[in-house]
Amino acid sequence: MDTQRSSPAMTARKVLETEADALRLLSDHLPADFEPAVQLILATKGRVIVSGIGKSGHIGNKIAATLASTGTPSFFVHASEASHGDLGMITEADIVLLISNSGETQELGDVLAHSKRFSIPLIAISSRAGSTLMKAADCKLLLPPAPEACPMGLAPTTSTTLTLALGDALAVALMEARDFKAEHFRTFHPGGKLGAQLSTVSQLMHGADALPLVDTATAMEDVLIEMTSKGFGTAGVLRDGALVGIVSDGDLRRNMARLMQSSAGDVATMNPVTVPPDMLAAQALAVMNERKITTLFVVEDGRPLGILHLHDLLRAGVA
Rank of each mutant, 00 (worst) to 15 (best):
S83C: 11
R5S: 13
M279D: 07
Q197L: 12
M175H: 09
T216E: 14
P212W: 04
L122C: 07
A149L: 10
F232T: 00
A82C: 08
M256C: 03
I307F: 02
V267G: 02
G241A: 11
F34H: 07
K135R: 15
L154S: 10
E221R: 15
F76G: 00
T91I: 03
R239W: 05
L25K: 14
R24S: 07
A155E: 12
S159L: 10
G233C: 10
A173N: 08
P272A: 02
F76R: 05
V172R: 11
D278G: 02
A113L: 13
T44Q: 14
G60A: 06
G153V: 07
A93R: 14
M152C: 07
D209L: 02
L30Y: 06
D94W: 08
D94T: 06
D240Y: 10
L98C: 07
A219R: 14
G191N: 14
L213R: 05
A22D: 08
L166P: 08
E176G: 06
I307Y: 02
L305K: 14
L314G: 10
D222N: 12
T187N: 11
A12Q: 12
I41Y: 05
S115F: 04
S248F: 01
L40K: 13
R315G: 02
A217T: 15
Q4N: 11
F118A: 04
G54P: 12
D215C: 03
G60L: 08
L308E: 05
V201Y: 03
M175K: 10
A37C: 12
M205I: 00
L308D: 04
V38E: 09
H58K: 04
R186F: 05
N289P: 02
V50Q: 07
A286Q: 14
I307T: 01
N61Y: 12
L30G: 01
T274A: 06
D179R: 15
G60T: 08
V77I: 13
S27K: 13
S80W: 01
A9K: 13
M175G: 06
A146Q: 11
N289S: 14
T234L: 08
S7D: 13
S80E: 13
M270D: 03
V267F: 02
A64G: 06
A210Y: 03
T3V: 14
T163E: 09
A137S: 07
E176Y: 08
A316Y: 05
I95Q: 04
R13I: 08
I95L: 13
A173T: 13
M279W: 12
I49H: 00
P144D: 10
V223K: 04
E19A: 02
V267H: 01
A124R: 10
L204N: 03
A43S: 15
D278Y: 09
A9D: 13
L162M: 15
G306S: 00
S262V: 03
S56P: 09
N255A: 11
A65W: 07
D110A: 11
V267N: 02
S126D: 10
S102G: 15
L310N: 02
